[in-house]
Amino acid sequence: MLPAKLRTAIVDDHPIVIEGLKTLLQNEQNIHLIGGFYSGADLLTYLGANEVDLILLDITLPDINGMELCQMIKKLSISTIILILSNHTERSIIMQTIQNGASGYLLKNSAIDELRHCIAEALGGKICYSKEVIEIIGRPTKNDLQGAPRLTRREKEILALIAEGKTSQMIGQELFLSPLTIDTHRKNLIQKFGVKNVAELIMAANQQQIL
């Protein structure tokens, strides 16, 4: 169970950003700031010996990118909530961080109210985006404009199972196929939808009402 005050770390390679966020958050009743970290390695060292409830994380760090760092944080502490605060606006980066364990994605120009809202949503187990990020991920991709790809019955079947979060091994057992065959179908689906990863694949299939 999370404490009344969230032990909060800020990870950014710009000291001015860390200081600005500290100033913004110092009067928040549910936030206890434990410090700022300029690199992924510094955060991981701290996390190895201390509990952190909330991490505000930038994507661009000097040693580890934020997408990879999400996975590392979750391996050390599954209950730690990660919210991305970044200037990166690429849909693929946004979706990859969520797939890697982040609970939300905000741009650095977001208002403090948006950050408060996202913290509250993340505490409730939801994924939250700032208004601008919602617009970015809602824009039609080149593939959307070309129309939905044609899928075989088997591809539709496998897509539905991928959307349920099942691994290639699990899907293979269910359909009496080898995991290698499932991996091939998975790669073909990503190619057909013109996306970069499974998170984008599921989102595109939902947008096109295939799932």
Rank of each mutant, 00 (worst) to 15 (best):
K108I: 03
A120K: 11
H117L: 12
I112G: 00
K126Q: 15
R91L: 04
I78T: 09
G125I: 09
G101V: 14
R116M: 01
E90I: 01
I78A: 13
A120Q: 14
L115R: 01
L76T: 09
S77G: 06
Q96G: 07
I98H: 02
G101D: 14
N109K: 05
S103Q: 15
R91A: 11
S86W: 10
H117K: 08
G104E: 11
I78H: 03
A111V: 01
I81W: 05
Q96R: 11
S92Y: 06
E114P: 00
I84L: 09
A122V: 12
I98M: 09
S79A: 13
Q99P: 02
H117I: 04
R91D: 05
C118Q: 02
I98A: 07
L76A: 14
K126Y: 10
A120T: 12
T89N: 01
L123C: 15
G125Y: 00
N100G: 11
I112V: 12
I98W: 03
I82N: 04
E114C: 01
K74H: 13
I98Q: 06
K108T: 03
A120L: 12
S86L: 08
T89S: 08
L83I: 15
K75L: 13
E121N: 08
S92W: 01
I119E: 01
I81S: 07
L123V: 11
K74D: 13
S103E: 15
L107H: 06
L76C: 12
I112F: 00
I93V: 10
Q99F: 14
K75N: 10
I81E: 10
L83W: 08
I98F: 05
S86V: 06
